[in-house]
Design a protein around this nucleic acid. Structure first.
Lengths: 197, 197, 197, 197
DNA sequence: GATGAATGAGCTTTCATTCAT
DNA sequence: CATGAATGAAAGCTCATTCAT
């Protein structure tokens, strides 16, 4: 009997989880297509569910946004220490990590545009991304500074947001070469900066 | 009587132009303070006019946004050729121009965020900025490449949007060092790029 | 096998009844705490069951509301005849019965607010309370009129609703002295009414 | 020219004021018919305007509710001192005032139901009514106590809410004799109260 | 030409009710 | 039978845009 109950529970959970996945994918797709401000109703339509279902899974709009990107951010965060161990130099590790970071930002789900603080509005996603990834990037950057490969004195926070900004909205614009720009930016870290600008 | 009519017309034109200026200044100020999404009504209030007046001058919200920045863009466009003539090298001219560009983007009126295409939304400002400034930046970049100071093969379009992106939303975030990042990016142009990323 | 089935049925019935009791108690508690408009889901949570279970037992919200108070109303109905037999006069019986009635209305479960017809909405509780209690109160009132203690010509229906109204919403308001007002009202029954108002 | 401008202004104001009146009447009618919880949209429909118009005139639902009753409450408040001067005794003035009060509550616009605090919800109307009318009723009651006509020690607050409660929801129910009940209640003020209840 | 009242589609969010599990 | 996920119709409220004055 306990078994039956458990099976029932499992069945429900499986169904609900499937729905959550469908929802997250629909949201992700629409975030890429229309930006994070896309109405909840459209997400619901795309996912083929009622709006209430979204609010059952995610109490707020912003909770949904966070959830959409959480997994990818997690992967990216875990890659940092691993690369620091395996790459031939700290700077090389940084380059590889940024490359991975850009992969997430550009090719997957338009994460980049969610990294910014929209003025007074969504503190949520921004805060989450930063909290999770800043230490990771900070460790890589510190190591590369210590090894003398990076000459510029810049905060991990700025670097990450910079990369994020460079990748923002690159989806629909074929003439904009986000990846090359990031390459140039990271290359610039090796150059002694001028005093002025 | 024709004279009187003309005088009236002239008077009105003067009045209307004054109104347009007031409006643009109010809008500019609010764009900085609250972002481009600030309600039309608040702009009208700040300008001391009715909302209808705004729509008489600018058929759309986006037309207003364009108009707000048009003047600044013009200044920036005119600076390009001048700097190419006066600076000690093409790359130096490029650096100075970008510095000026960043001045507009960052310190003045939050132009940066208006440079992007918001998905299906505002094509307007984006198109205008690019049309006007891409040739200017392109000339500077070509000269610097020819002089051998710039080793990276990058389009002016990408570079401009890159700088614009780096400066985006830098208003409310004290930890984000837009200007340093731009410096790093421009410095990176001098470095032979790696093949891979 | 029939025996087993019966036992199962019995067991389930016992279970279902237990569930119904739990539900009614949870609902009663929440009605007091938050008013009759408390969401069904919260009642379900408080009772530790699913919302579906509530709808199995009570097809409608209003059916639940009725059920919650049915028992108390029954007690109150049974007290009428008893008091008429035991009190020293019909008016004294009426006073005691109203006192008991107020007990239910005020101190127990906020019954009062369920006694009114909410416009087009809940006919349910209202109808039930009236059907059950009006005859009881009517008998007491008639007896007190006959004994000459009550001089006002008023219907039991009005008197009951009047008392109910005086007790309505008295829960959250410390300055509102429902019981005193009821005392004044019942005292007023003994006074020869003016013609006019 | 100033005259023209003024005339234009006046015209607008006249129009807007007319609309406000239409709105208030529609709201009043619906409050009576369906209670104060009637949706804003339905009020807008009844008034033949868009919902936005309501929010232009009244920033909140509760502001509308207050506005609907403000005028009537004002009339009622002003009647208090006048009656105290003209009636033959303080108690007679109280009776007349309560009669007037009931007129407003019952015959006009279902004010009564707006006098209660709906639990956590609308503090607004309740507070306004009380603030305005409690002193008025308090003066009448105090005078009647002093003249020895009223023997019950009751607060004006309770008395007003009691009368309000007795009149609540009396609209749709022909069997409920609110006015008689109020008469009984006020008569009861003259009777020495029993100790117990 | 200027005004700002009016409009109404659209937003996020809640909740009674249904129904697959 | 119990469950609670799903539903979707409202709800209050905002704001770009129109239009009578």
């Amino acid at each position: 009997m306990a078994d039956v109950a458990q099976r029932a529970t499992r069945a429900k959970r499986a169904d609900a989880q499937r729905n959550e996945v469908v929802l997250l994918e629909a949201a992700a797709a629409l975030f890429v297509e229309c930006g994070v401000d896309v109405p909840v109703r459209r997400i619901a339509e795309k996912a083929g569910v009622g709006t209430g279902t979204i609010y059952r899974h995610f109490p707020n709009r912003s909770d949904l946004v966070i959830a959409v990107y959480r997994h990818q951010v997690e992967d990216c965060a875990e890659a940092g220490p691993r690369l620091l161990g395996s790459a031939e130099s700290p700077y090389a590790a940084l380059v590889e990590w940024v490359d991975l970071f850009v992969d997430f930002l550009v090719t997957k789900h338009g994460l980049a545009s969610a990294m910014r603080n929209d003025g007074k509005g969504y503190e949520g996603p921004h805060a989450y991304f930063i909290d999770r990834l800043e230490p990771v990037c900070g460790d890589l950057l510190a190591a590369a500074k210590e090894s003398g490969e990076v000459l510029v004195d810049i905060e991990a926070y700025s670097l990450m947001l910079g990369v994020g900004n460079l990748c923002a909205y690159s989806g629909g614009d074929d003439r904009y070469e986000a990846r090359i720009l990031v390459g140039v930016l990271i290359a610039g870290l090796q150059v002694q900066p001028r005093l002025a600008p």
